[in-house]
Design a protein around this nucleic acid. Sequence first.
DNA 1: CTGAAAGCGCTAACAC
DNA 2: GTGTTAGCGCTTTCAG
Lengths: 363, 363
Amino acid sequence: MSRPTSKAKPVESAATRAAAVTPAPEGLSIAGVARQAGVSVATVSRVLNAHENVRPATRDKVLAAIDASGYRVNELARNLRTAESRLLLTMVPDFGNPFYAEIVRGIDSIARQHGYFMLLCDTGADPGRERSYFDLLRRRRADGAICLDPATIQQALGEASSALPWVACCEFDPAMGVPYVGIDNYRAAGDAVRHLLARGHRRIGLINSDVDYLYARQRQQGYLDALTEAGIEPLDGWRMNLNSLDYEAGASAAVSLMLPRQGRGQGQTEPPSAIFAVSDTLATGVLHGLRSIGKRVPQDVAVVGFDDISIAAQVDPPLTTIAQPMRELGETAARLLLQRLANPLANVPGVLLPHRLVIRGST
Amino acid sequence: MSRPTSKAKPVESAATRAAAVTPAPEGLSIAGVARQAGVSVATVSRVLNAHENVRPATRDKVLAAIDASGYRVNELARNLRTAESRLLLTMVPDFGNPFYAEIVRGIDSIARQHGYFMLLCDTGADPGRERSYFDLLRRRRADGAICLDPATIQQALGEASSALPWVACCEFDPAMGVPYVGIDNYRAAGDAVRHLLARGHRRIGLINSDVDYLYARQRQQGYLDALTEAGIEPLDGWRMNLNSLDYEAGASAAVSLMLPRQGRGQGQTEPPSAIFAVSDTLATGVLHGLRSIGKRVPQDVAVVGFDDISIAAQVDPPLTTIAQPMRELGETAARLLLQRLANPLANVPGVLLPHRLVIRGST
DNA sequence: CTGAAAGCGCTAACAC
DNA sequence: GTGTTAGCGCTTTCAG
């Protein structure tokens, strides 16, 4: 930026003020402020919480005492008293994955708008961790939770956790009785495949994640049905299931998918002329893998991804993909949770958000 | 969908157990457990906190009462009593950026190892938000903070926040009296440039972030000095400063850097034959931008990035870059903070971690 | 080894 | 409008 304009503030003023103004904010309580202001703790509390029934003059006295002393409310005490932590737990399987990052951002923005902060937990692949996170709710460490992790949701199913205040995001089971937000994975996968069919492809590969997850099964079914409806018999050799969404996993999957292999009975099976990968991270890896074995995209093999994370438009060629409204998914999840917290009895609905096919150079 | 195989667990068992075992865990306190176990609250507390001085028989009685009732400790109360939140605040400028994601992961792992959870805050570009986050410390909402945001650190300078328990990560000012961890940005940038020089480049461009930030100034200086030492006069037209690290920012910067432009006095300046971008996200965008104007990498223009995020190895061509030990940066930051919390008086040092030049196809 | 009791700092009735 | 007071649920002396 080179412009020396902007951030040049007079630093001394702040430093001086700090020295003069903050005698010992540590260990200062509402009682201390009350004494200094010559009022009761109740009045200080009222001012702190912006209650109406305080005479302006009194309020000013209190306010003066507060910023003369540098007092800050102790939220530990407030939280105990009000029996809420004002924290929302967000469980993600991997916050290195840009897909989750964007959703988390949506959650964060809504949460903050409502005076909540976000406790972010990476569940990783560790099953022990996963299980224990729901306990944070029972221990009152968080008021509610949003779960983005398929594995954790599987876990939750087996426990009596449906009574706990949480919502599922992206991976969900409508039958579970837990509020959720996501997209129609079946239709989305079908859309991807139909796009490839329209481009003239007949041998379409699928690089999917673990079919233990509902979303993976739904996308697989969408893929299978779209092919069948087009009069194509889907071969098993076209499909791969991975337990990772990393770039590398996509790259090596692509390579092995292109390897000539034995078909059932009738000799060699031709490798797919197109690959549908269920995440853009995988698809990005697929591009890399195909390049490494000299396949050109889209001339030799077309590629469709899923999610539309920001890298999708940057790779070469840019990825055709199914866009998920990531930000809105996060925001909606947060709203559903807040709604559930505000009214524990209300029937919070499951909601499906629209997806969209984004066509770029990879097909 | 389809396969009913895998995770078909006997769901009833869990459901039944829940119904039988959990009468009303809500509103159950340590006093209730004490009553059920026929002991005092003090004893229950001792068991809860694994104190040694409890007779085994008593302990067992208490344990039995605890899991008969489904009791969970109320951490709100515990936190007030012990005057700690067991939360570590992590401030990032943008958790959509994979660089920060990996660091955050390092922080999280160390924090959890020590019984802390992580309050993650995206400071975004909002100056109002930035300022208020340090207040979370004063309000006892977090026990300590790790700041990854250059802008927030600038901000902190102006306040009396150096007494607060926080550490700086990646962006830091050794003169600030705040513990920090980072790398030697000056040397790292020099290494990148010297690599390019060794490849025979004489016109080397720099795509930098805002020079308001110390790390940006250090990298710029490293770049300038490396050129000068090689007997090259760095032209102003080779440098750009951006206020974003997004892919798109890198792409458009690359395009405009390649534009023929007026040199100082002597007519046309030739565009750089190599570009050093101060983050891999920018560099990835640079690749995209160069491609869009028909430049080949590395034949027409070489590119060096910074960070070595995982996408760097996947793009085409794979990025030569300066690797930062992201995970270790996060872990170290967390350790320094924990150290500072354990012993507020101790002099916590600043630490520099080694960087490394990773050579790939883009040069 | 166990129990009684004193708060942590705050909010919210309930009086005045 | 303002003050008094009773806890929120826990940990931790201090006695016994």
